[in-house]
Design a protein around this nucleic acid. Sequence first.
DNA 1: TTGAAAGCGGTACCAG
DNA 2: CTGGTACCGCTTTCAA
Lengths: 351, 351
Amino acid sequence: MTKTTVTTAAPKAGPPRMSDVARLAGVSKMTVSRVLAGRSASLATRERVQQAVDQLGYVADAAAGALSSGRSEFVAVLVPSLSSSNFSDTVGGLTAVLEREGLQLLIGDTDYSLEREERLVRQMLRHQPRAIALTGAQHTDATRALLQRSGIPVVEMWDLPSEPIDTAVGFSNVKAAREMVRYLAGRGYRRIGFIGGASTLDRRGLDRLKGYQMEVKAQGLGEPRAIRLGDSPITMSHGGPAIAALLAQWPDTEAVMCVSDMSAFGAIMECQRRGLKVPGDLAIAGFGNFEVASCCHPTITTVSVDAYGIGERTGETLLATLAAREQGDGADARAPRNVRIDYTVVSRESA
Amino acid sequence: MTKTTVTTAAPKAGPPRMSDVARLAGVSKMTVSRVLAGRSASLATRERVQQAVDQLGYVADAAAGALSSGRSEFVAVLVPSLSSSNFSDTVGGLTAVLEREGLQLLIGDTDYSLEREERLVRQMLRHQPRAIALTGAQHTDATRALLQRSGIPVVEMWDLPSEPIDTAVGFSNVKAAREMVRYLAGRGYRRIGFIGGASTLDRRGLDRLKGYQMEVKAQGLGEPRAIRLGDSPITMSHGGPAIAALLAQWPDTEAVMCVSDMSAFGAIMECQRRGLKVPGDLAIAGFGNFEVASCCHPTITTVSVDAYGIGERTGETLLATLAAREQGDGADARAPRNVRIDYTVVSRESA
DNA sequence: TTGAAAGCGGTACCAG
DNA sequence: CTGGTACCGCTTTCAA
């Protein structure tokens, strides 16, 4: 196979280009571009172009378009774990909102590592995303610097930091945890324990622990009884060993608050294996209102958070900010810096 | 804290470009490009460039690079549902393999819709991905045409089609289901039911149903007892109503095979609510070996499939194909057209 | 409504 | 080892 030496009908390799479409339709490249963008063009022209596009199976090159117009169609989102249903739900909500505007999500999984997050932010930025959504408020200095310099809208999700980089969509995990402790105390439980992860990287988990500790103290429920075990993301396998450790150390515990429903579920299953009745012998509460919480037997008392809604609100916030910038609005018309997401304690059978 | 006062030089808007780096380092753009690509350059030059890059916080524009070099760093992957743990695991495996090569995943969620898949394929193709991985073997004609014309390597995952578009990485859901029925029959169960989804879009679910029916017939276990209920993805909430329907129609059922562990879990919880012992009164088996299967009480007998491994093998297959093409190998040196993934029946407490 | 020219920010290629 | 030049495929801008 020799290289085609110019001239004559060269059997063009690779996919068709806009110029190919233009030639076939008998118009200029520009006209094709306009038709595809849905801008002014006579009906006849539009049809001819469309026909050529179909015939050739033309798919416009997004990189070229982005380079030329100076704006990509990307929005980046980073979550700590894609296999955690609340984060994949958030991504789902974000996708639903953004795809209406033709925006394409660039999804990254930080695996709860700030270093990985930094690497991913850098990589995402290479694609000049129109905006970026991160999970949590904890980032390396380099990450912050990168984001600041990028100048694009940034949303931090799942938390309400006192000093957001730009905008935040979330709730106070500390307060939510306190509310759960109040609920348990209200049900008459006094000796309340907590099980969560050992990692210091899961800021939201740590905040829940903090909320637990604060409220236990506030309610005068004695010394906190907290077991910290296992790495994030906390999965179902976490609950069994954790509850075992808790009961070994504080056998007279009456109720346990878990950092997540996954953990609570594992704990409940372990109790069943031991012949302990839930909530009769031990009450167990979760966090997050995952599907398992409503399907499990007994059903799990938990804090319900609208993970999908966080994604939606994040998307809407980003779109609003982008629209405002489009119109050249200054910092004034910026979207609100903090969007508070509701949560509620859902009382079920387990506690 | 030296606040770089903005000198009178033109306040360039936007992020720094390669030419800015070049100017600051006192070299040509090309040299910067080479240094960043890790190609030949004297140590001194490399250091100067690196310093300039750091100082400016330069992040190369991927779109420009892709356009110029004619090759993007994207690989596209489409799954039916990101919130289903087996698919998010597959995405995880794929990510792990591809990121070693600096490739960036473009993730799409088809929501079990072939039309959505087609739209997403078109959208992905706009970014000129180096390769694309789809789930399943069922696609619209237009999707097939798009993929064919794109000329990039295609992998179909989670199935072993008789006529793959290009390459497939998966296993036979029919055979796996048959094996589970054989297992149940081997345990002495005769009146075996099946619960699965009603949607015709979940090909893998349908194949499992088909395998169930075939093997029930082959074993002479009487008429199949199949309940089809609910949309994909099958979640935990599916199992309760499904098992209720099954028992209503065939009260003397001894064992039930579920299309997924999610479903099996919901069914088991429903049995517990009804006071039915599993497996004493009713044996229940799942599919997929999700985490819940090993955490649940009783633990769930299931078909174990290495979802993460499917992602890894897909990544490896794609890389191999890309490498082969790089070397100009013809169709000969192509990667194998079918990569078989192992599965095993895992015997646990529930059946 | 349509077309021609310029150029987005990099990389391939070849020369020095 | 380094630099100049052309150009990737598209959109912007301006002119017709």
